Simulated assay, not measured.
Amino acid sequence: MRKLKTADNTHYGVALTLSKKDDGGFLRLVASHLASSPTGMLKDKAYLIAVATTGAGDTSLLICGSDATKVQRAALLTMSKFIGHVTPQPQQDGGAVWLARVRGLGWSAYDETALWDVLHKCAQELVDPSRPPPGSRGIDETLAIARTRLQRLLPRQALAELRDTDIKVPVLLVDIRPAAARAAQGHIPGAMVIERNVLEWRFDPRSVEGRLDIATRYDLRVIVFCHEGYTSSLAAAALQDIGLLNATDIVGGIEAWKAEGLPVEMES
Rank of each mutant, 00 (worst) to 15 (best):
R2L: 07
R2M: 07
K3H: 07
K3S: 08
K3M: 01
L4C: 00
L4P: 00
L4K: 00
K5P: 00
A7P: 00
D8M: 06
D8R: 09
N9W: 07
N9S: 15
N9T: 14
T10P: 01
T10Y: 11
T10G: 00
Y12Q: 00
V14T: 04
V14M: 06
A15P: 00
L16Y: 13
L16A: 08
L16V: 05
L16I: 04
T17E: 14
T17F: 05
L18S: 11
L18Y: 08
L18K: 12
L18Q: 13
S19Q: 14
S19L: 00
S19A: 13
S19V: 06
K20V: 04
K20N: 09
K21R: 15
D22F: 01
D22A: 06
D23W: 09
D23Y: 07
D23H: 05
D23K: 09
G24F: 04
G24H: 03
G24E: 14
G25N: 03
G25C: 02
F26K: 11
L27G: 06
R28C: 06
L29I: 10
L29Y: 09
L29W: 11
V30T: 13
V30C: 13
A31P: 02
A31K: 06
S32M: 07
L34T: 06
A35T: 14
A35S: 15
A35G: 07
S37E: 14
S37R: 11
S37I: 09
S37Q: 12
P38N: 07
P38K: 09
T39N: 08
T39V: 11
T39H: 09
T39G: 14
G40F: 09
M41S: 12
M41D: 14
L42Q: 07
L42Y: 13
L42E: 08
L42C: 05
L42A: 05
K43H: 13
K45Y: 02
K45A: 11
A46Y: 03
A46S: 14
A46M: 02
A46Q: 13
A46C: 02
Y47R: 04
L48I: 04
L48S: 00
A50W: 01
V51F: 05
